[in-house]
Design a protein around this nucleic acid. Sequence first.
DNA 1: GAGTCGTGGTC
DNA 2: TGACCAAGACT
Length: 363
Amino acid sequence: MRVDSSAPYNHARRLLDWYDVNARTLPWRSPPGTPPPDPYRVWLSEIMLQQTTVASVKGYFELFITRWPTVAALAAAEDADVMQAWAGLGYYARARNLLACARSVVADHGGRFPDTEAGLRKLPGIGPYTAAAVAAIAFGAHATVADGNVERVVARLYAVETPMPAAKPTLHALAAELTPTQRCGDYAQAMMDLGATICTPRSPDCPACPVAAGCAALKLQTPTRFPVKAAKVARPTRQGTIYWLRAGDTVLVTQRPPRGLLGGMRALPSDEWATVRPALAPPADATWQLLPGSVRHVFTHFELELVVMAATLNDGRSVALPAGATWVALAEIDRIGLPTVFAKAARHALAHLNTDRVDEKAA
DNA sequence: GAGTCGTGGTC
DNA sequence: TGACCAAGACT
């Protein structure tokens, strides 16, 4: 094996030797030194892994691969089926882009993924990181992968004092210098495994690190100080109302607008979520009851406090429904792909409206 | 460049 | 318990 011997302490060689022994076994991965996996599997896993933990992704990856074994099968899937299968994984724009990308690969590229960074970068949902990762891991291209793990490892190796995210261009340039010309896919995965298992954010295991001898942050005895982070901003609280409308054994379920927060997902009827609670009309003329307590949910950039109003209709067919709204059997409410915030609201409503079922759910 | 976009786990 | 964090992309 030939690697860049000019890098500090033969960085790439040490890292690849470590990876040969310590690589994690993952459903979308082939063992070190073996032929790369199907590009479809690499791409699917990389999309799912964006800002999402390995533990969360595993089940979804197996489910998707079993249900849609090829990019052509996924491209032919119904939008609603894919969105429902993605429910709970978060960042739902990824699911929309996943379908758009699969259909573009089939329609514009003969069913095969482009094998270069530039070609992959043009596809929906594939940014700089994912393009480099698929190019390197699936096609062995000489691409530099720079995700959060790599940024942390490099920031520590060089003790970069510039705060994030301003340091990103510097860190990516340093990462490119370290990248070897051989075994690029294994190297990319080795850097991410190192960041995920050794060079972790809070308690790095420096004695076990294969490149500790070349680490400036360790030499300074302050590895966790890097990467330096900018001052954080407070997260505002927004408020809203969920409308739990029963008719017989069914409840009214709506659909979110195609873009934006929770875009395209199934939902419960709700008003706008603003910093001041708005006074909007409920979705039906009925006797509404404010349920005691509230539901709290934290998003990336705001915290949401929901109250739930409940009403029961004698005949759901007598109501003019909003566009996209449907009646869903209560027994099905947990299986229709509700984002977690709405699943919480549904549990809240059920807990206050039916004491018997509270005991069943607790059992 | 700064905001937007989910969720579950950890300490 | 709350803040932080996880294989980013898009606008």
